[in-house]
Amino acid sequence: MGTEELVRLEDVWVHYDSVPVLEGINLTIKSNDFLGIIGPNGGGKTTLLKVILGLIKPSRGKVTVMGQPPEKGRRFIGYISQFNLFDRDFPISVFDVVLMGRYSQTGLLRRYTEEDKMAATEALKAVEMLDYKDRQIGRLSGGEQQRVFIARALATNPKLLLLDEPTASIDPDMQAEFYELLDRLKEKMAIVLVSHDISAVSIYVSEIACLNHQLFYHGSKEVSAEELEKSYHCPIQLIAHGTVPHRVLKEH
């Protein structure tokens, strides 16, 4: 299986009101990557994802997705936002939420086809949520809702999955299950997840990068806390709410 380059960022800068949020980011994401981006809150993690998705225009630098500008290439990306923003009472069923993932294949003025419905069903099966397909979305637990949003992203048939703080709304005891799901998915697509929770992320991902306005790409995740802090200027104590147990980083 060849590795294809999916995303490339070259010297990307983003400013909010002339305050730099991202400073000179260089990053490539390949088709077999499973990358965890960690960093403190306010370090620009969500901004970075939105730049890749073309939702935020960089003030400097170049972004390509599948060799195209992000507005065109983003249909190959399944995006799972920090989803505590949506309205839990919204009158919509689980199945209809997942069907939205098919929009990029269907387009304006066309109805969802049987094929779209099959794809949505398959996606719900993949996250083991098919039994809940007629449930109103708000009447699920945080972890179950998260699975539905992953199913929606999968229904787009993505080459890359972007997850923003995916474990924020999941009970701690459900997190292992969630990462096992990602573990299964990584065979089929690249995955990038951002989180401020280094301990959970580092067990499962293949590579870690630190983002605090600048990006420090470590390649391997086999780096100690001291190393992160010294050579890469990452304020680990901010990220992990205390010292990071080395065991977690070294294990696996």
Binding site: S81, F86, I92, V97, M100, Y103
Partner: peptide
């Protein structure tokens, strides 16, 4: 429906 439920996702979806 997409727009009302999730504007960000609807933009990304095209």
């Amino acid at each position: 429906l997409l727009l009302s439920f999730d504007e960000e996702f609807s933009t990304v979806a095209g």
